[in-house]
Amino acid sequence: MTWTDDTILITGGGSGIGEGLAVALHRAGNHVVVAGRRPEALEAVARRHPGISCLPLDQSDAGAVRAFAEEVVRRHPRLNVLVNNAGIMRTEDLQAPDPDVVDDVVSTNLLGPLLLTAHLLPALRRRPSAAIVNVTSSLAFVPKATLPTYCATKAAMHSYTESLRYQLRDSGIRVIEIPPPRVYTDGSADDDHGVGVDAFARDVVSQLVSHPEAQEIVVDAARLLRFAERRGDYENVYSTVNFHDSKGTP
């Protein structure tokens, strides 16, 4: 893929990483469709960047996902890239669990993208060149204990992505994983622990273009967690990630 002149659907595209990727890919010469729970946020993105389209989607609702998939293909028949980015993060105390939080996080972060992928796969198969991009998290590889369900869903998405890539290995559909580090969405400068959303999006698109066969896009700030187990220092990194929480501080 050349990552230009594609028709790209990005879930969770009304803010944060989704908006950053949408803008970067739009500027690269693609037709981008952003989807998400908040129509007003999507419309604001489309107003700021003429040419970006938007459609509302609550991917925690299985019925809505099916209807949305039919609508997006009807409106954008050249759709050839799906970016599963939408997700929610909730802190939890597992000694006083909240089943509603578990249900909301799992349905949004895991069931939603799996169902959307399943519903869109027939349309993607019809395109001569297509891709499915799953935005997971570096916390899929070194979890943060205060975000147990969030981290579990991201680890599950990593596993699903591996299986999807293997099963589609003989098709024309590329399957790519992006595990972001901490991404600052408020304009904060980059530091050793994270990166600003605009810099993150630019780096991701640059790597997609320069490494067209890459199966995973890992920016520098994500490498500490993503490859902790491979380097053999998982326990040290896990302790670092969870140190402040064990001290009772933010």
Rank of each mutant, 00 (worst) to 15 (best):
L82R: 02
A64H: 06
D61S: 10
P50S: 14
R47Y: 02
L55R: 13
V65A: 09
P77K: 09
I88A: 04
N85G: 11
P50E: 14
V73P: 04
L57D: 00
C54Q: 13
R47K: 13
R48Y: 01
I52Y: 01
Q59F: 10
V72L: 03
L55M: 15
I88S: 09
R78F: 03
L79E: 03
R74H: 15
N84H: 08
N84T: 05
F68Q: 03
S53D: 15
R48D: 11
N85T: 08
G87L: 11
S53F: 04
L82H: 07
V73Y: 07
V72E: 00
A62Q: 14
I52V: 14
N84P: 01
P77C: 09
P50L: 10
E71Y: 02
R48T: 01
R75L: 15
V83W: 01
S60P: 02
V72S: 00
V81T: 07
V65H: 00
R74W: 08
A46Q: 12
P56C: 11
R66H: 14
N80R: 11
V73C: 11
A86H: 01
L57S: 07
E71R: 15
N84V: 07
A46Y: 08
P50Q: 13
I52L: 11
N85Y: 10
G63P: 10
G51C: 08
A86P: 00
N84K: 05
H76L: 02
S53W: 08
I52D: 00
L57I: 03
A64D: 11
V83F: 09
N84A: 13
A46G: 10
G51W: 08
A86L: 07
A46C: 15
L55C: 05
R78H: 12
I88N: 09
A64S: 11
R48Q: 12
I88L: 12
N84E: 10
F68A: 06
D58G: 05
Q59W: 12
Q59K: 11
R74E: 14
V81W: 01
I88V: 15
H76I: 04
N85V: 09
R47F: 02
V81A: 04
R78A: 15
A64N: 04
R66K: 13
N84I: 09
C54R: 04
A69K: 01
G51K: 11
L55Q: 13
V81K: 02
V81M: 05
G51S: 10
V65L: 10
R47S: 13
R75Y: 02
R66T: 15
S53P: 07
I52N: 00
H76P: 10
S53V: 09
D61G: 03
L82I: 05
P56A: 14
R66C: 05
S53G: 12
L82E: 03
D61F: 00
V65K: 00
R75P: 00
A46I: 05
N80G: 14
D58F: 06
A62W: 02
S53R: 12
H76C: 06
R48I: 01
A86F: 01
A62H: 08
D58Q: 13
P77Y: 08
R48G: 14
P50A: 15
R75K: 12
E71C: 02
A62L: 11
R48L: 10
V73H: 07
G51L: 07
A46E: 08
P77M: 08
R74C: 09
